[in-house]
Design a protein around this nucleic acid. Structure first.
Lengths: 349, 349
DNA sequence: GTGAAAGCGCTAACAT
DNA sequence: ATGTTAGCGCTTTCAC
């Protein structure tokens, strides 16, 4: 059965114990400077003795700080998000903030967000890799602090932090070109509504153009970021009269799907087809062969975003920031020169 | 710069708009029964028109419900936790609760927990796979609703939800025995402080005993649940004068590490050594060969735990519950009969 | 049925 | 340097 919870000790109890008024107690809690050291001492002793712990709700209701930030995520399906969340969690904790986790769940987000911003939370980290909903405009109008992660934003007023999607894709493509590949496909991800995917495609296209490699529309395939699409796209590519000898995939999951499709056809990675992924999620090192991929600094993205949000919350002359973090090519075993590929002649004909 | 946030619309604004007192508004918000339908209508219209959203802090300060539950996790290192968290998130959302995410970060947990329980949160889900800290006793003394996930608890007062660790391990071991293995090793995980690990070991030992297989202390190796230990333990097992022909690993990560160690020695899974894991995290299907493993119903664990917590919070005649969810062996490609193994003769000598 | 009034625990002027 | 007072937005008696 539900028994009564023991009564909480309040600021008032502490005040009586210490023999001061409760506003004095509030002052020492908030490190107000002009409190006599003895008094502070007495108050702290009383707090210690009674096991006082502040009531956050009351505190922030009264106009103080709640020290909690909201983290809005779309879902937990994609493990690259986990890396970012971990970074956020670490940094928030280091900065003295708590985290309120909000998953969109496709519900009526707007009033839900309002609820959060309307009290519980001092700022919002938004990790929703798709087109932004109307609530972001609300936030902007209200000057409510927020930062967009893995999203370009809708205006220069937005705080954003992204990986260098364009450059990372460019580097990956150039890496394949340097290896000797001249016919390079791309499995491009969700081009319709996700910035990162189109930026990566642009990087690929730029490298293709810069090095005067033959481009072809048939070499680019798109869909979402997940494994199944990776396999489907790879099958399309393989069905071409001149299949590519290398494929750059816009995510690791896409790459994993592609590798499965290749091995299902009894072809080999990297001998017949070289594969490069994007993200460097943990799964990338479990594949056979290990996946060469463009590493996003997932953890760092989370940490930086959290710091930006903190600044937006706490600083009075804060200017919006758009931050881009560099990526890095991680070489594992999924790429090699094309000369031994069954597709090599066809590719060069 | 930091502009003023626009003022929130309060219950008071709604009252004026609707031409009623604000206590009436509160009544319709809380679905109090004796409010005239017309009045309700007027109030709802006003709320709609003004875009009113309740202020959770104020509401719960005043004695109402906050509808948020806390989720205490140790860290995000292990992806089996992600599956559980996802289940929690889904169910909480379905039940109308929000989630406050708290990572322990090894900080002074006790006062931190107090802070949560002391206001923000109506109940606590605890996913801390190690020895419980003193705060759990505090919770119990205070009759604060909580449920322990993946932990046996310290008394019959605890609510717990666990996978069938003992039975799952027994089944896995029996599966290996049925395949013909007679010398089966175990990489047992963190035996010192984690219930799940010792339960799995007991399941393994029971199967070994039931089928009168030769047991040997040298065949059991322990450490933590992670990949490196898996590799280290496997190397120890391989260095034995009579290595096992099959190894049951207490986690998938351990199994993945073990498989790496095996392939580093140019031995083959499953031909030379069969491997079974535990958890069925996503990584288990990315390995080559695919990992045969004991599937924990991760999602379901999270969902069930959330429902138990809800009951503990909302029901007045709630009795503590200890729930065990069944596991299931997922066959992939990492096991076979031992007869082709280089260790087969040695194992049977 | 509905309004008035008293807090919930705290912060932030305003006094002194 | 510290006490007094008025809320923050809401729920909940207690009246009428």
């Amino acid at each position: 059965m539900h028994k009564q919870r023991s009564a909480n000790v309040t600021i008032f109890d502490v005040a009586r114990e210490a023999g001061v008024s409760y506003s004095t107690v509030s002052r020492v809690i908030n490190n107000y400077e002009f409190v006599k050291p003895d008094t502070q001492e007495k108050v702290r002793a009383a707090m210690e003795k009674l096991g006082y712990v502040a009531n956050l709700k009351a505190r922030s209701l009264a106009g103080g700080r709640s020290q909690v930030i909201g983290l809005l995520v779309f879902d937990f399906e994609n493990s690259y998000q986990i890396g970012i969340i971990k970074g956020i969690d670490d940094e928030a904790s280091a900065l003295g903030y708590d985290l309120m986790l909000a998953t969109t769940h496709g519900r009526k987000e707007r009033s839900y967000i309002t609820q959060l911003t309307n009290g519980l939370v001092e700022g919002l980290l938004i990790l929703v890799p798709r087109s932004l909903d109307a609530y972001v405009e609300d936030l902007q109008k209200q000057n409510f602090p927020y930062v967009l992660i893995d999203h370009q934003g809708i205006s220069a007023q937005d705080n954003t932090v992204n990986a260098a999607n364009y450059q990372g894709a460019y580097d990956a493509t150039k890496y394949l070109i340097d290896l000797g590949h001249r016919r390079i496909g791309m499995i491009a991800g969700p081009l319709d509504n996700i910035d990162s995917a189109s930026d990566r495609l642009k990087g690929y296209e730029a490298a293709i153009a810069d090095f005067e490699i033959s481009a072809a529309e048939e070499l680019v395939c798109s869909g979402d970021y997940f494994e199944q699409i990776g396999a489907d796209c790879m099958n399309n590519l393989l069905a071409l009269s001149r299949p590519p000898t290398a494929v750059f995939c816009s995510s690791d999951l896409l790459a994993i799907g592609a590798m499965k499709a290749i091995s299902d056809r009894n072809l080999r990675v990297p001998e017949d087809i070289s594969i490069v992924g994007f993200d460097d999620v943990p799964e990338a090192s479990y594949t056979t062969p290990g996946l060469t991929t463009v590493k996003q600094p997932l953890n760092e993205i989370g940490r930086v975003a959290t710091r930006v949000l903190r600044d937006a919350i706490e600083s009075h002359e804060f200017m919006p920031q758009q931050i881009v973090l560099t990526t890095q090519l991680v070489e594992r075993k999924s790429c090699t020169a094309p000369y031994g590929s069954v597709f090599y002649d066809a590719a060069n004909s």
